[in-house]
């Protein structure tokens, strides 16, 4: 029988499912709408600064805002600083919260599992796709910011926080480094979203809970009374990429952030596995 022959052939590693997951994610209009909205943030900032006659006074508004008129390369950085607290977590929450719950509510989860995708494999693929989205979302802001900055403002060597000056080429590299830092920052939140998504068949609920958690974590991080808790909050290092804008680069906050995010991934991936591997799929 042909199907028996099929079985005798070794199973594929299964990259096809990841490729398919990414193509489904990036074929959705919602995904592109979110990426465009993110890209619009630095563009709006740049336009606002360009069109207003007054130079933004130093010390007000987001960091680096006053430097934009002298050097367009700062637009990307300003855009990221504006997006980190809410817009980026919002889009990541939507994607991560949708991972399992979205499939459940569409009725496709049971067909994926009967195919069989394998529950662990499906979780891994879903998480990988969410991480890819974190990178895409951050890049959308950074790249749109760099492009609009170069288009509207003069571009020149950049003065770092340490007072050193670096070339345009290196400053673009530093922007990518900052984007990488922020992408890593969002991975812990993706793992939390993935776990919440295994708890429900209602994707909107999982998305909202994930986003609320991102906000709560930042609120707690701003209360000095909870000092002891701060290093454990997944949002604690979100804006700590200043170290990457010094000469020489200090990797401390990058390392601390990466370790913290990895810990969140371990804990919430384990919780998601514990929940999903034994869950009755009744959707």
């Amino acid at each position: 029988m042909p199907s028996s022959q099929l079985l005798r052939s070794r199973p594929a590693v299964g990259w096809a499912l990841l490729a398919s997951e990414l193509s489904v994610l990036f074929r959705r209009r919602r995904t592109w709408a979110m990426l465009l909205a993110l890209a619009a943030v630095p563009i709006l900032i740049a336009l606002a600064v360009r069109l207003s006659s007054a130079t933004p006074p130093p010390g007000r508004g987001p960091a680096f805002l006053d430097q934009i008129t002298q050097n367009g390369l700062f637009v990307g950085a300003v855009g990221l600083i504006v997006c980190v607290p809410l817009f980026l977590p919002l889009t990541v929450g939507v994607v991560a919260g949708d991972t399992i719950a979205g499939e459940a509510s569409a009725g496709t989860l049971r067909y994926l599992l009967v195919a069989p995708a394998g529950r662990v494999r499906l979780l891994l693929v879903k998480f990988a796709a969410a991480v890819v989205f974190c990178v895409a979302a951050t890049l959308a802001v950074a790249v749109a910011g760099a492009a609009i900055g170069i288009a509207l403002f003069p571009v020149g060597p950049v003065t770092l926080l340490s007072g050193d000056t670096i070339s345009v080429g290196e400053s673009l590299l530093r922007s990518l480094l900052v984007a990488a830092y922020i992408s890593v920052s969002l991975i812990g939140l993706s793992a939390i979203g993935l776990f919440i998504s295994t708890l429900t068949d209602v994707p909107v609920g999982a998305m909202a809970s994930t986003i609320v958690l991102a906000v709560v974590s930042q609120v707690l991080d701003s209360l000095p009374q909870l000092d002891w808790l701060h290093p454990w909050l997944f949002s604690h290092y979100w804006l700590g990429f200043g170290d990457l804008l010094r000469q020489p680069i200090s990797w401390d906050s990058f390392g601390n952030n990466a370790i913290l995010q990895a810990a969140y991934v371990l804990v919430f991936a384990a919780l998601a596995y514990g929940r999903f591997s034994s869950k009755d799929i009744l959707s």
Binding site: L7, S20, V24, R27, G107, T108, A115, P116
Partner: peptide, 21 residues
């Protein structure tokens, strides 16, 4: 149960990739 924003063929493609055999 299908993804409404994908075509019929794309939906089947997607579910077929889930089967490693």
């Amino acid at each position: 149960g299908f993804y409404p924003y994908l075509s019929g063929a794309a939906n089947l493609n997607r579910l077929d990739t889930a089967d490693r055999y």
